[in-house]
């Protein structure tokens, strides 16, 4: 009898302990600061947006969300640094087109975005437009195509493999043009290069016109479909899809947070709830800087679908250019 009582006591203690620890773990996340890894340099648009989001999440979660910048290396070191940390929800990754889309498609990476990560949401977005200087002879996109044929104009982009570059490459391919690409590191720098005459044409963002006023002229928006914010930033400018039905100008620029695959479901839920509460409201949207566009997608399934749509869009483009890594 004594033995049975002892065994029962032991079992119930064990059960209590496990149960207690379980609830303790559940109730405790987050109990220490969270790290957000950003694969861009500090100060740029992607970084600023990530910081604003980190700040909002931090208020919801009650712990600091610290941004760590790990730029360079085709975003691989930053991505891997998240995968090297434990899957406990204390390391978040700020994913973006390079890290989740272009780099895995164009080179062998030690990770697979949709297998190794659980994407939580997407927020930041951008759309690109083609710009020339205000004193350029090309006043319409059609004139530009005519004038650019047979010449190799200098095209300014920010970085190789980044969406502006891919949009430019796609456009060249669709319209039978050839360009010499000059990578000037950031979008403002490429537009500055345009104004200074270093390049003849540049890919900037739709919102870039705000900063450069009458020094540059938009020719066309490099997208198939019209998004809501186009009218606000570039009134009267057509998209490729509208002006040339049948020509492809798909662009995919999104970014958001993700955690390592294998993170416990309850932790993921806390993060999802916090992000929805923090960012899916008017006050937050009003705090987004003018130069940054916003396209909200929330939840693991929806965000995964969004990322998959990007892969579906870019794979054939990259394949056609011989850049798809097989």
């Amino acid at each position: 009898m004594k033995r049975i009582i002892k065994q029962l006591a032991g079992l119930s203690l064990a059960a209590l302990a496990v149960f207690g620890m379980g609830t303790a773990a559940q109730a405790a996340y987050p109990e220490k600061p969270i790290t957000l890894v950003v694969s861009f340099a500090a100060g740029g648009n992607a970084d600023v947006m990530a910081r604003i989001q980190a700040e909002a999440m931090s208020k919801e979660l009650g712990v600091p969300v610290n941004v760590v910048n790990r730029p360079g290396g085709a975003h691989v070191p930053a991505t891997m640094s998240v995968l090297e940390a434990p899957a406990d929800g204390y390391t978040l990754f700020n994913w973006s087109p390079p890290s989740f889309m272009v780099v895995p498609l164009t080179r062998a990476t030690p990770y697979k975005p949709l297998e190794d990560f659980v994407p939580l949401f997407a927020g930041i977005s951008a759309s690109n437009a083609l710009y020339v200087r205000s004193d350029s002879p090309y006043t319409t996109f059609e004139e530009f195509i005519e004038g650019a044929k047979g010449k190799k104009l200098k095209m300014g982009v920010n970085n190789l493999g980044a969406p502006p570059n891919l949009s430019a490459v796609q456009m060249a391919d669709q319209f039978g043009l050839e360009f010499t690409t000059i990578a000037l590191k950031t979008v403002p720098a490429s537009l500055n290069g345009l104004v200074a005459g270093e390049v003849d044409v540049a890919v900037g963002q739709v919102a870039s016109l705000n900063a450069f006023g009458d020094k540059i002229r938009p020719l066309i928006i490099l997208d198939n479909n019209r998004k809501d914010f186009y009218e606000k930033d570039l009134p009267g400018v057509r998209t490729v899809g509208e002006a040339f039905p049948g020509k492809e100008a798909g662009a995919w620029v999104h970014g958001g947070f993700a955690v390592k695959a294998g993170t416990p479901d309850d932790v993921v839920k806390v993060l999802l709830d916090a992000s929805a509460a923090a960012m899916d409201n008017d006050a937050f949207r009003a705090s987004i800087p003018k130069a940054i566009s916003w396209y909200w997608v929330h939840g693991v399934e929806d965000t995964t679908a969004l990322i998959q749509s990007g892969k579906d869009l870019y794979s054939p483009i990259l394949d056609g250019l011989g850049l798809l890594h097989k």
């Binding site: 100060g43 600023v48 910081r51 604003i52 450069f212 006023g213 800087p289 003018k290 130069a291 940054i292």
Partner: peptide, 10 residues
């Protein structure tokens, strides 16, 4: 950027 100021002549 955080304070919604766009650098430029404006």
């Amino acid at each position: 950027a955080i304070n919604n100021l766009t650098p430029g002549p404006m």
